[in-house]
Computed example of a mutant assay.
Amino acid sequence: MVLSPRILLSNVAREKCKACLREQPQLFIQNGAISEPKAAVLLPLCVINEEVHILYTLRSSALKTHSGQVSFPGGKIDKGEDVIDTALRETEEEIGITRDAIDVWCTMSAVQGRDKNMLIKPVVGVIKDFEKRVLVPNFHEVEEVFTVPISALCDPLNHAHLMFDNTPLPIFLAGKHKIWGITGFITHLFLQCFLPSENYLVDFMRKKFDMNELLPSKL
């Protein structure tokens, strides 16, 4: 991967990415049962040592749902909020990054949660001057905050899949972490639009995990 932050985060690249994301359909919405997003997450880009990374959180093992799993900052939409407000508020509550520190690019098409009753809207944003920021994780919700370089996410050796409803879903291996489920799927959809096709060559079928291997991984 030779693409620098100067190229990946340029105005030209940003507009191309936004145009591609606008063309993506909403996914996994069955029978029209839900039509409005109930939750929003932030897909946070940041620059570390002159390389673009994506930031993730590890949910606290004490949480009732999706405990010990990798996720993006986010949560349910409060009354009177739009999806961007929700994503920025939840990011500040979970990791202490304020909304003025985030350059919001756009929203992505909504995706349906695993329980089929939760429509989630991702918001793409860049955390400005990330290396100067002090993260303040809310340890009631977040056990760990970590980032993964774009180059690592593009490496086919870090790709695997989970079969769910007869569909292979992408998994990204990031050291001790496995990025899977809705978070892995959103990551994949974003990278398809963010990167030139020659730089994002996937091989998710190279390795298979089953749910039992993923769920107990409360790192």
Rank of each mutant, 00 (worst) to 15 (best):
V2Y: 10
R6V: 02
I7V: 11
L8I: 08
L9K: 09
L9E: 11
S10K: 14
S10I: 04
C17G: 03
C17F: 07
K18R: 11
L21F: 06
Q24A: 14
N31R: 03
G32C: 09
A33D: 04
E36Q: 12
K38S: 00
A40G: 05
I48Y: 00
I48K: 00
N49Y: 04
N49Q: 01
I54C: 10
L55R: 11
S60P: 01
L63H: 05
L63R: 05
Q69D: 05
F72M: 04
G74Y: 06
I77M: 06
D82C: 04
I84E: 06
I84Q: 06
A87T: 15
R89H: 04
T91M: 09
E94I: 12
I97Q: 15
D103P: 03
W105F: 05
S109V: 02
A110T: 03
M118D: 10
M118T: 14
K128M: 05
H140L: 14
E141A: 12
E143Y: 08
E143R: 12
V145R: 00
F146K: 03
V148H: 09
P149L: 14
P149C: 15
I150D: 04
S151Q: 09
S151F: 02
S151D: 12
L153V: 06
C154S: 13
D155W: 03
L157T: 15
H159C: 10
A160T: 10
M163W: 06
F164T: 08
D165N: 13
F172Y: 14
F172A: 05
L173R: 15
A174C: 07
G175I: 02
K176G: 14
K178N: 11
I179W: 06
G184Q: 14
F185M: 13
I186C: 10
T187E: 05
L189K: 00
L191Y: 00
Q192K: 00
S197G: 04
E198W: 01
N199E: 11
L201Q: 12
F209D: 10
F209R: 07
D210F: 06
M211P: 06
L215A: 13
